[in-house]
């Protein structure tokens, strides 16, 4: 039996959802909901158009709906307490700070950075997924990256929490 056309996209949907939600079980639930929604709506998908962007659009809409109807994903993504950096190599400290900084930007900012920086969607694809004009995507991307940079440099914003 030939694999379903959705299947080749599951790994990147999972990567995105895990990075977005920081909780594997919530992420897999979101992927599952996306695939189920996709199966139901597959007749509406136009053959030959961009299946990957279409699936990411479904996922983004589910994510946004959940954000507005319940705050569970927000409550699930507080800045995490992590061990102090004394015995961690420098790059691990950087990675840890980056993970924390990612939690301090808004979910929408995180989504835009992940779609473009991690999933390598084109700016046009990201605009489709987010249902925004390309110009808005570009300006939001710039703001999100600058916010992350500032957080990483500790120049402003809430302090990252350190525990011993």
């Amino acid at each position: 039996m030939a694999a379903h056309p959705f299947n080749e996209h599951i790994p990147s949907l999972r990567r995105y959802a895990i990075a977005l939600l920081r909780d594997r079980s919530l992420a897999d639930d979101l992927v599952q909901d996306t695939l189920e929604r996709g199966l139901k709506k597959f007749t509406l998908f136009q053959k030959g158009s961009d299946l990957r962007a279409w699936l990411f659009t479904l996922m983004h809409n589910l994510f946004i709906n959940q954000l507005s109807t319940s705050r569970k994903w927000l409550h699930n993504t507080p800045p995490v307490d992590v061990p102090s950096g004394d015995d961690l190599a420098e790059e691990m400290v950087t990675a840890r700070d980056f993970m924390q900084a990612l939690q301090l930007i808004t979910a929408e900012q995180r989504a835009i950075i992940l779609l473009i920086g991690l999933e390598q969607l084109s700016y046009e694809q990201a605009a489709t997924v987010l249902n925004l004009p390309v110009g808005t995507v570009m300006s939001r991307l710039a703001r999100a990256r600058e916010r992350l940079r500032v957080l990483m440099n500790g120049e402003a914003g809430p302090q990252l929490r350190r525990v011993k």
Binding site: F6, Q32, L35
Partner: peptide
């Protein structure tokens, strides 16, 4: 994450 086997319950959604 890309190298992880896809959880079976996700593959099952489509197959």
């Amino acid at each position: 994450v890309l190298d992880e086997p896809t959880p079976e319950h996700l593959v099952n959604v489509t197959t």
